[in-house]
Amino acid sequence: MQLHNISKENSILNTFIAEIRDKTIQNDRMRFRRNIERIGEILGYELSKTFNYKPNTVETPLGNSSVNLTTNNVVVCSILRAGVPLHNGLLNYFDDAENAFISAYRHHKENPESFEIVVEYLACPNLEGKTLILADPMLATGQSMVATYEALKPFGTPKQIHLVSVIGSQIGVDFVNECFDDNTHLWIATVDDALNEKGYIIPGLGDAGDLAFGEKLQR
């Protein structure tokens, strides 16, 4: 797997990362969602540099202009519910993309510190020969990302796979590196060192789904 940690170079991305982490600013749900969306736009721009392009001619009111346009057929897949703002950011740049949605959540058994990933809902177009962008804002253990891709396999084999996350743990990055082949790209805004005993990223930012959409009742 090819890792692209965008925070390795300073940019305006630092501001958005700081604001989604800041426990006072992140209380503004609208701003939190918008910052996740803007990070998705930045990551989408960066990954678009790996696409295939061909020359096209555009007719202006005063003449013709030549421009290279992408030939990739893109499918953006996000993991509900936390992935929705990140999905929207990617979709802002990939206007014609097809879309897939999947629910993957942690199911805790007797031990609250252990869990399994449960996939319940899935809506997906044909993936054969397309460019799959799999979006999950928090790459903690990496298990959700892997379980999601396993669930997508019956829909065809993508030509390219791009994993997109906002914050990851080094453990999660290492896990997906083992599970995806060398041609897969991981685009991530920043990577933290540790997970706590419950599998949450430290320092991270908290629960991205709750911060974006409000707290949920556990069942």
Rank of each mutant, 00 (worst) to 15 (best):
residue 160 Q to N: 15
residue 154 P to W: 11
residue 160 Q to R: 14
residue 135 A to T: 05
residue 157 T to I: 14
residue 148 T to C: 12
residue 145 M to I: 15
residue 159 K to T: 00
residue 137 P to T: 06
residue 143 Q to I: 03
residue 151 A to T: 11
residue 130 K to C: 07
residue 134 L to A: 05
residue 163 L to Y: 02
residue 162 H to S: 14
residue 159 K to R: 14
residue 160 Q to I: 02
residue 135 A to Q: 07
residue 137 P to N: 04
residue 158 P to N: 10
residue 150 E to F: 04
residue 140 A to F: 01
residue 132 L to P: 01
residue 164 V to L: 04
residue 156 G to H: 08
residue 134 L to H: 03
residue 157 T to S: 15
residue 139 L to P: 04
residue 152 L to W: 02
residue 159 K to W: 00
residue 134 L to F: 04
residue 135 A to F: 10
residue 158 P to V: 12
residue 129 G to Q: 07
residue 162 H to V: 11
residue 162 H to F: 15
residue 130 K to Y: 06
residue 139 L to K: 03
residue 131 T to G: 04
residue 165 S to A: 15
residue 136 D to A: 06
residue 150 E to L: 13
residue 138 M to L: 13
residue 138 M to F: 09
residue 132 L to N: 01
residue 144 S to D: 05
residue 140 A to K: 04
residue 146 V to P: 00
residue 137 P to F: 00
residue 165 S to G: 13
residue 150 E to V: 08
residue 132 L to M: 02
residue 148 T to L: 03
residue 139 L to Q: 05
residue 153 K to E: 15
residue 164 V to T: 04
residue 157 T to W: 00
residue 154 P to S: 11
residue 144 S to T: 15
residue 165 S to R: 04
residue 154 P to N: 13
residue 164 V to D: 05
residue 129 G to P: 05
residue 135 A to R: 03
residue 151 A to R: 08
residue 148 T to A: 11
residue 148 T to N: 07
residue 152 L to N: 00
residue 141 T to N: 13
residue 141 T to E: 14
residue 138 M to K: 09
residue 145 M to A: 08
residue 163 L to F: 02
residue 140 A to L: 00
residue 153 K to W: 05
residue 160 Q to P: 00
residue 144 S to K: 03
residue 133 I to H: 09
residue 160 Q to M: 14
residue 165 S to P: 13
residue 153 K to A: 14
residue 150 E to P: 00
residue 160 Q to S: 15
residue 148 T to F: 01
residue 139 L to W: 06
residue 154 P to T: 05
residue 161 I to T: 12
residue 146 V to Q: 05
residue 144 S to L: 11
residue 147 A to I: 00
residue 130 K to F: 10
residue 156 G to C: 12
residue 138 M to G: 09
residue 135 A to E: 01
residue 131 T to P: 06
residue 138 M to C: 12
